[in-house]
Structure formats: C-alpha cells, structure tokens
Simulated scan of single mutants.
Amino acid sequence: MGNPFAGEVAITIGDAVHEAKLTLGALAELEANLHSGSLIDLVARFEGGAFSSRDVIAVIVAGLRGGGWRGQAGDLLAVEFAGGPLGAAKLAATLLASAFTVPQ
C-alpha cells in the first residue's frame, strides 16, 4: 500500500504492485507530454470530469515512472486496472491529489 504522506499510490499491473508517485521530475515529464495546456489545466479537467483517456494514461505513466518503473505508455494499453477505465481514472486523480495536497 502506498504511503500517502510521501504522495505514493499503489498500482497493480498484472501480478505486481508498484508504488507510484508524481515526483517533480515525473510532473515535468507529464507536463512536457501533455497535448494541451499545463498541469493546472490537467487538474481542472479532472476536477470537472472533462479528462481524456490519454490524460489518465499520461498521469499513471508519470506516477509509475516517479516510483521507479521503466515502462512506456504502450505497455499499459492491454492492462486491466481494477475497476476498469473508471478505476484507472480514480488512480490518476488520486495521484494528482497526492502530489498537491497533504493527507489529513
């Protein structure tokens, strides 16, 4: 299980659990890979429910890379996330929230 005080979120890929977190480097890579807007725009899209599947994958990949994963976005195309697409979107939203808030 991820450590919320370190901004970590546990993500299961296949049989392996990975600790993901949006480090500063991961956030910079995420922002560089966004097809539109800034990180603030990305957060606003998630808050408003106007995010794309590309946004979800980009955030998850950045979080996994921040946790030390060496894969590529294409490696996740056939992955089944718990809860399906909605579960993946919740993981991405949790990663974003964990990067910018302090847990209660």
Rank of each mutant, 00 (worst) to 15 (best):
H35P: 07
G63W: 00
F46H: 06
A62F: 03
A62D: 06
G63D: 04
V59Q: 07
R65A: 10
S36M: 11
L27T: 07
Q72E: 15
G67P: 08
L30Q: 05
Q72D: 13
V59R: 03
Q72H: 13
A50T: 15
V61I: 10
S38I: 04
R65E: 13
L42T: 04
R65T: 04
F46G: 08
I60C: 03
R65C: 05
S52A: 11
I57E: 10
I60Q: 05
I60A: 03
R45Y: 05
V56C: 08
A26L: 09
D55P: 07
V59Y: 03
G49H: 05
G49W: 01
G37W: 07
S36L: 13
G68Y: 04
V56D: 08
G49I: 04
G49S: 10
S38F: 06
R54N: 13
L34Q: 08
V61M: 09
E47W: 01
S38E: 05
L27N: 09
G71A: 09
A32M: 11
G66Y: 02
L42S: 09
L42M: 11
G66P: 08
H35W: 09
V61L: 11
A28T: 12
R54A: 15
G49Q: 08
A62W: 02
I57H: 07
G67N: 06
R45T: 03
F46W: 05
S52E: 11
A32V: 02
L34P: 09
R70D: 15
E29A: 15
L39S: 09
L30S: 07
A62V: 02
R45L: 11
V59A: 08
R70A: 15
A62Q: 05
G48K: 14
S38D: 14
N33W: 00
F46M: 09
G66N: 07
L27Q: 14
E29T: 11
R45D: 12
Q72G: 00
L27R: 12
V59W: 02
V56I: 14
G37D: 09
W69H: 09
E29S: 14
R45E: 07
S53T: 14
A28C: 08
A50I: 07
A26M: 05
D55W: 02
L64V: 04
L27C: 12
A50N: 13
E31I: 03
A50D: 14
E31N: 12
H35M: 12
L42Y: 06
I60T: 02
R70P: 00
E47M: 13
G71I: 02
W69K: 11
S36A: 15
G66I: 00
A28W: 06
G63I: 01
L27F: 01
L27Y: 02
V43Q: 15
A26T: 01
E47R: 14
A44L: 14
R45I: 03
R70I: 09
V56A: 07
I60E: 03
G63K: 03
E31G: 06
A58T: 00
L42A: 10
G63T: 02
V43A: 15
E31Y: 01
A62Y: 01
V43F: 12
W69I: 01
D41S: 13
E47K: 14
G48T: 15
I57W: 00
V56M: 05
W69G: 05
G49E: 09
G49L: 10
S52C: 06
G71W: 11
G37V: 07
V59I: 03
A62N: 06
G67C: 05
L27W: 01
D41P: 06
A32E: 14
A58Y: 00
E47D: 15
Q72C: 04
G71M: 10
H35Q: 14
S36P: 00
